[in-house]
Computed example of a mutant assay.
Amino acid sequence: MPWKHWSAERLGLALAVLAALGFSFKAIFVKLAYAAPQPVAVDAVTLLALRMAFSLPFFAWMGWRAHRAAGGAELNRRTLLWVLALGLLGYYGASILDFLGLQYISASLERLILFTYPTLTILIGVLFLGKRLRWQEGAALLLSYAGIGLAFAHDLHLAADMRTVLLGAALVLGSALSYAFYQAGSEPAIARLGAMRFSALALLVSTFATLLHFAATQPLAALQQPLPVYGHALGMAVFSTVLPVLMTSAAIRHIGAGRTALVGSLGPVMTIFFSAWLLDEGLSWWQLGGAALVLSGVLLIGMTKGQQRRPCDPAAPQAASAPPASTACR
């Protein structure tokens, strides 16, 4: 059926599903890059640097468009420092911890742990911002972490070295926590700068921080990788970053932020099935049960927040808290 004949709602839903598909593939690309045949596996810093470098032209275009839309208004020093801090937390810090964690645990467990960031954001609000914990939010926390426990038990049962799984899970939980702090602190910046301008600036900060990290810790020769690694990094940049961000923004325009975020709940389930299909990771009832509990918790958060009007960030990582952050650079 030609695109022009689609209703706005059907088009928005299709774009949201495609965005969730793209975001769910990020962990698959990372694991495939780590497994690419070569004498020494690519390290997390180099792989992240390649991904961000391939994405940089899009981020620069996005920032230029947002700057023009804002009439070229300059940032004051306080706002600039706030954007720098949030950019380092939300995309650089969260991404590097996530890539490191994927060296030790399965893609399916990584996705479920990462998907708890909406509940972590709520905890941060309660502990540091004076917000109250509603019963729905408390129930969502219990559901989400019970689900993580099931999936975690599955990986521990199969692991030859329990310490490896514990280390990987701790790194990915640190990634989710880093992004949750970004999420909790981004609302005033989004209200002041607008979602697109703030997201573009945060993405550019994270890109340059990643490239500086690479320059400080890796030799330039580390960029000499086999073609499969370049292909997986480019795939992450195009299909798990740039295109999903654009599709998420378009979906929000057609069906709203809340419904777009709820469709994004498909992401962890997609990752579990892609992991079993492409990476030969085990698929068990423990994982499926854990995914169901985590999704139930996030959906409960979404329904609770769906009653509140909040600014939406069309470039956040892949998970669903409604009205959202949507998804990109985790």
Rank of each mutant, 00 (worst) to 15 (best):
L50C: 09
F181N: 01
Q218M: 14
W6M: 14
E9L: 13
L223I: 04
V205R: 03
C329W: 15
L89T: 04
T46F: 10
D280A: 13
D161K: 05
H67K: 13
A322M: 14
D155F: 13
L109C: 06
V83L: 13
F273I: 10
S144A: 15
L288S: 09
I148L: 09
L158F: 06
R10W: 11
P57R: 13
L223N: 01
T116Y: 14
L97R: 00
L84Y: 04
A291R: 05
T327Q: 11
L203V: 01
G168Y: 15
S7V: 12
G71L: 15
Q308Y: 12
F25M: 14
R134K: 13
L246F: 09
L171R: 00
V40S: 06
T241A: 13
Q225T: 03
L166P: 00
G289C: 08
A94Q: 14
T248Q: 09
G289H: 06
Y34E: 02
T210N: 01
M1N: 07
R65T: 08
D155G: 04
M236I: 15
A8G: 10
T260E: 02
G297M: 12
C312N: 09
V126C: 01
W277I: 13
L223P: 00
P188C: 07
H232T: 04
L47K: 00
R253Y: 04
P323K: 04
V269Y: 01
L56K: 06
A140H: 06
G289L: 11
A159L: 10
W285G: 10
A159Y: 06
T327W: 14
F152W: 15
E9R: 14
P57F: 15
P268Q: 04
S296M: 13
L201F: 15
E9K: 10
V238S: 01
A27L: 08
L150Y: 09
P228V: 06
L102I: 07
F273N: 07
L127K: 02
A94F: 15
I255F: 02
A276V: 03
L56E: 05
P226G: 10
Y179C: 02
L102K: 02
E281D: 11
F274I: 07
F23R: 00
R310I: 06
